Simulated assay, not measured.
Amino acid sequence: MLEITINVDSWAIIGPQAAAIRQQVFVIEQGIDATEEWDEQDALSRHAIALIQLPSQAWAAVGTARLLPSEKTAHGTTLSKIGRMAVLPAYRKQGIGAQLLQTLIAEARARQDDEIWLHAQRHACHFYAAQGFTEIGPPFIEAGIPHVNMQLLLK
């Protein structure tokens, strides 16, 4: 059983670890153009990083995700967006993604957001559905990969 710690902080603090994971998963593994991966939202967002304790007692960063700043909708509700969720291949299917997601959901609840949206890669929809998200709208292509919008109502 892995010992997992999730830290949440700014890009200035977590950025180097998060960037290394995103580079590996999105740019190298999935072939997303690096110019599409990095944007101005990183500096504005809250970032979660999953750390596991190795047998050597050192800690290694193995997963990341970000929570963008809240937005007010036309209906007067407050909307959060979660994105850039990535777990290194060797550590998938061990609950790390769920812990990252639940940590950022708790952050959104703490700032009293009404709902969370995310762009889920089609193959990962079942993962987000298991965490309470529902698909909304038709599938679309983002960065050359099939996605769907998903929503979680918090209130």
Rank of each mutant, 00 (worst) to 15 (best):
A50H: 10
S80W: 04
A143F: 06
A143Q: 09
H147G: 04
H75T: 14
E135R: 13
A61L: 04
D114G: 07
A18V: 08
S10W: 08
I96R: 00
L104S: 10
A86D: 07
A110W: 02
Q121W: 03
G76P: 08
T103G: 11
M85H: 10
Q24Y: 15
E37I: 09
E40S: 12
D113Q: 06
S45G: 07
L51P: 13
Q24P: 02
E115M: 15
A98T: 13
S10D: 15
I52L: 05
T134L: 07
A50T: 14
T35C: 15
E142Q: 14
Q112L: 11
T77K: 00
F133I: 11
T78G: 02
R22F: 11
I52H: 05
A34K: 14
S70E: 07
Q94D: 06
P69L: 03
Q151E: 10
Q102A: 15
I21K: 00
R92G: 04
I82Y: 09
Q41C: 14
W38A: 14
N149K: 08
L67F: 09
D113T: 02
S45V: 01
G95E: 01
A48H: 02
L2R: 10
H119I: 00
F133E: 00
V27Y: 11
P69M: 03
T64Y: 06
A34V: 14
L54Q: 13
A61H: 10
I32W: 03
D113E: 14
E71C: 12
G63N: 13
M150H: 02
G63D: 01
Q17N: 12
Q23G: 02
A20H: 14
G76A: 12
Q99F: 12
T103W: 13
Y128Q: 03
A50Y: 03
L79D: 00
L79N: 00
A120R: 03
S45A: 15
Q112D: 14
E107Y: 02
R46H: 11
M150W: 07
S80V: 06
I21L: 07
G15P: 01
G95R: 08
